[in-house]
Design a protein around this nucleic acid. Structure first.
Lengths: 228, 228
DNA sequence: AAGTGGTCTAGACCACAAC
DNA sequence: TTGTGGTCTAGACCACTTA
């Protein structure tokens, strides 16, 4: 763990443990630097992390203050630098509805930038959070890049497995809009048909810029995002 | 303009002018530092900007590469550090459907953290992009914080006006989910009733942590966001 | 082993806010 | 005017990739 991340975590903990209210003033930069035994640059970076994750806000010439958000029940759209549902992986269970190796359908091939003669894994899963259906996810992995996948990985975190296999996951493009669920989707999510839902499309790249995963996720959750 | 921002802008320009493809390798860090006459830290910061705005990706031990996204027609959910629709303000026209000073309705008062005896401006606007309805926005401003607003500001950028008046706008919380449009909303947006749409709720804070604006926006656009 | 990105430091200097 | 956050630099040292 990097030093600035460790410092950010400590400061965040301090704020949560002491339950500091919105607007509470923290010690000034110099004091924080001494407190955490670090340089100005590193302390600033730790504070920037916390600013980006809604924990503090900084006002030039004035001070550093605690930031609290109003609604706690919303799901963060992006968890810091982790991917979608970064910190939620632990709480989410997967029910595998389909696991097959097929030739890439045309639209999938296009998104993965492969030909329709290339093999992909198609995995359809229901994500379950606290016992209730949360998201319906259909994902496609390029066999040539991820290698052979045992069926058992589908019920856990596929990304963790791939990382263990030595794959270097880089970054992703995320596209989303609002749609009506069709009958099948609604049924899987235990919602009435024609319910509105968020559709999220992800294109995941390896470290070296190659696309290895395309996925479509449907969910009705309420999301939260931050901006400065 | 900060040095690292200026450098980021130049490098981005260079990539676009030369239409470099996804995966094209850029000069190494040391070379870039010399090229732009700056220090390692500042160059890294410029590159981080570009990484966050999807222009490049960096691979430790390997190099710095051009990143291009697949779909260009999507609206960025967050434009760099600017707010929602940061760079789009110029292209958006506003059709004012309501402009009134009222006592804060209960739900609005709660979101603004004021009492229902406090006055707020209620402004209902249709945002028009390239001649077509794009978003329907209902926003509430705390009179005690923003002062008297001339009705004419509603047809332009209210935030620009407030900044001119000396208000320091700080940050915002953004909540969103997917809903069905009711008849009125659909009609305003020229969509069939019961169309699905994205609902975005924003709570805007001043520099000093006070809430001055709460707004609800409905739109059917396709959005784009990035993650690393 | 050589090359490339990434983190951290110490200190100079700048910009804004509060008094 | 003083205090506070914010930017930039130069250089040491670390971590990863490539060959």
């Amino acid at each position: 763990m990097l030093k600035h991340q460790a410092i950010a975590a400590k400061l965040k903990n301090y704020i949560e443990e002491h339950d500091l209210p919105h607007g509470a003033k923290l010690p000034n930069l110099t004091t924080l630097m001494e407190l955490y035994g670090t340089s100005k640059n590193t302390m600033m970076q730790a504070l920037k992390n916390l600013e980006n994750s809604h924990v503090v806000y900084q006002v030039q010439g004035s001070g550093i203050f605690v930031r609290r958000r109003q609604r706690e029940a919303y799901t963060p759209l992006f968890q810091n630098t982790a991917g979608f549902f970064g910190n939620f992986h632990e709480h989410i269970k997967h029910q595998v509805l389909a696991f097959e190796k097929i030739l890439a359908p045309p639209d999938v091939a296009q998104n993965l930038k492969v030909t329709s003669k290339d093999s992909v894994y198609r995995i359809l899963r229901l994500q379950i959070l606290d016992g209730a259906p949360f998201c319906l996810e259909e994902s496609f992995y390029v066999v040539a890049l991820v290698g052979e996948l045992p069926k058992s990985v589908a019920s856990t975190s596929i990304f963790s497995y791939l990382r263990q296999q030595g794959l270097k996951i880089g970054f992703s493009d995320k596209y989303f809009d609002s749609v009506l669920l069709d009958e099948k989707q609604a049924k899987a999510l235990e919602l009435p048909p024609n319910s509105p839902a968020l559709r999220l499309e992800d294109i995941y790249y390896l470290n070296d810029g190659q696309i290895f995963d395309y996925s479509r996720t449907y969910c009705q959750a309420k999301f939260f995002a931050q901006s400065n």
